[in-house]
Write a protein that binds this DNA or RNA. Sequence first.
RNA 1: GGUCCAGUGGUGGAACUGGUAUACACGCAGCACUUAAAAUGCUGUGCCGUAAGGUAUGUGGGUUCGAUUCCCACCUGGACCACCA
Length: 809
Amino acid sequence: MYNHQTIEKKWQKIWVETGAHKTGVAKGKPKYYVLDMFPYPSGAGLHVGHPKGYIATDILARLKRMQGYNVLHPMGWDAFGLPAENYAIKNKLHPRKATEKNIATFKKQINLLGLSYDWDLEISTIDPAYYKWTQWAFLQMWKKGLAYESFEPINWCPSCKTGLANEDLEGGLCERCGSLVEQKPMRQWVLRITDYAERLLNDLEKLSGWEETIKEMQRNWIGRSEGAEIDFAVIGGDRSIKVFTTRLDTIFGCTYIVLAPENSLVEALQDKIKNWPAVKRYITETKNKTDLQRTDLNKAKTGVILDGLTAINPFDKTAVPIFVADYVLNSYGTGAVMAVPAHDIRDFEFAKKYGLRIKTVILPVNDIAQESEAYLADGRLILSGEFSGLDSADARVKMVDWLENNKTGARKVNYKIKDWVFSRQRYWGEPIPIIHCAKCGVVPVLESELPVVLPEVKSYEPTGTGESPLAAIKDWVNIKCPKCGGPAKRETNTMPQWGGSCWYYLRYIDPNNNKALVDKKLEKYWSPVDFYVGGAEHATRHLIYARFWHKFLFDIGAVNYDEPFTKLRQVGLIMGEDGRKMSKRWGNVINPDDIAARYGADALRVYEMFMGPFEQAVNWNTNGLTGARRFLEKIEKLSVTFVAPEKEDEEALSLLHKTIKKVGEDIESFNFNTAISALMILANKLTDYNNQNNYSSVSSESFFSLLKILSPFAPHLAEEIWEKLGHKKSIFKSSWPEYDPELIKDKTINLVVSVNGKVRATLEVPVDIKEADALALALQNANIKKWLEGKEIVKNIFVPGKLLNIVVK
RNA sequence: GGUCCAGUGGUGGAACUGGUAUACACGCAGCACUUAAAAUGCUGUGCCGUAAGGUAUGUGGGUUCGAUUCCCACCUGGACCACCA
């Protein structure tokens, strides 16, 4: 038994006093940048699930330091944003006070676990010296035309009283508070992330260190589709209708056109709509629907015809009716579609309901088409003029050529990703550094005037007016125009939380730089982040936003690399013992402080890494901790009872070297569970030997190697034993042991002998045994003889070093 | 509906590139130590069977000397997206 409380307190104190975790910058050493996604310091504090990723990166950081790297391993706070602000409002505390308090709690909890962060580099997004550069980057985007004002309807959360980006929704609900999100037209700042869509997509190919699942999620989110934009001339109107389609091969089956209710063409027809009360009513009804109601897949499709208007199919010149229907989204493509009911489920459903014509123009090449539903797959074209007889894929190419030759359409690529709604009508965020002048319009704040500091307000609750609470501070809002000197007003919207987290990993490199976003020499040394770890929930938000921001910084020459994160791993959640997410609501929260106090931080670290594969969600099980604790005690006991042998035991020594190899490899590949399992097997072996002999199996040098490979997992205990065994300098100043390739080679193996694929014997033989010798040995084996009796040997399969399979009949 | 992932003992899980399935740990049972309990140590532990042996990686097929691993179909669960034309 060891007293974890004494040991852990002691070493945590020593590490601080000796500056053990200061970032190394020794010359001639390679660099390694290990980073956690920095947390929002919410009011609830940490539960045992939060540190899982931090423990993993800590193990990696400690390994890399011992391997002789200069390691950058920092931590900071994503402290602006709705959660912090909502917490502050609820608890009647100023957001800054609340945030500071939460940061203190988080930091205390993190430090209990013996994590080796360099706290000298700590940053916080709410620090004006930090957000100066968030604002600076925004201004650079504005200069390049990537930040613009828009008046389109956007997602509006009536409870948080702010506009939200598409990425902030979960199934039509506000991701923060769960309220039904409305569509509300309002002025807002938007970042043109769509300009980067192609690069964000293509450069995923470069990211071989990312898990395929995350890349796939980003591909889906960006949602690239190739197709054609087609002009349909309108009879009875002065404008043509543009539609986007990926299925140009089906155009001869187009029997009507549908416009989204918000389509600008519908607006342009205002005069006519006056005479169409049904249309007017339909549009009003649609506007009153929430996004959730509108996109409910179960509801029947509705729509209304634009009487008297027809559109002309450029291919066959047929006239088709035009409808307005809310199953068409204005935000995608042109907000208008050519409806091909025979080959699209949605159009099929709509056509059935309104009795519209269904014209089949694609026949399956092999199967038989069913008449009761739309045929969606590719096939062979019929009733399609000169294109009849072609296969779909071929037809799409020829038909788009035809469109371009006839100037009635063109090739077109569309993306699902939308521009990033970047303003929030809330207090707790970075002020957008823009001034509105009555004469000059939008004027940027001078770079020399940055940061625009978030002023103190009396009431920081959201107003719901489309302005943030900042609008109420007259002497802050009213300002002279930097261009003409006339009266002007500051922008009162603030940035979303995702702004500050787009570039924080650069700030750690150079946390006090007030002259530039980052010193380029330092950035060149440390960038990119070698290993990045965080939750899967950031796959399509933070990780897309940060890649976009970083590419922009690269384009303006502020950084040297165009992808910020080389390797990326996601942490699997730790669920409650009941299998539900840990939450106050279910009363299943396990607090890391309690566990560390009772079982020790080292046991907690070992247990969390041993629970299962790193990426996978696992249920917490306090019983499982005893296994981790027993393992640590076994090691401690080995150290206390250590007696150096005259000669090392060969088997134990070989196992040690195999374990050194495995643990090093497993840490780098994040297979912590198998690394710990290997350490346990080694500890068990050494313990067994000690129990059977009066001395230990390996030399003290070898035992030190065991301590070293244990140390990233259980740093406190490893330090303590290391010191007790006579070392003056920290174990983390020692170097990671090398395994001896000769020692890990097996001299003999257990050769499996099977008859017809069933194992009948295992023979201990030299590793390099030849087939003939193996067969001769096998044929002498009594059990094998029994199975071969009366049978004829057809052939033998021999896998050197593994098995011999005798096939009989 | 789309995209992706997974399914192995009572439980968490392991198994390299197709080559001894169930490593390691929890739990459980028995034993030792103890006045007793806890702790610790030892032994056992997929299922059927006294054993020999048989059988087992969601289900059903296939390829193979040999399949948890590869292929096809289905069932179940999860993640993300979702009227994206």
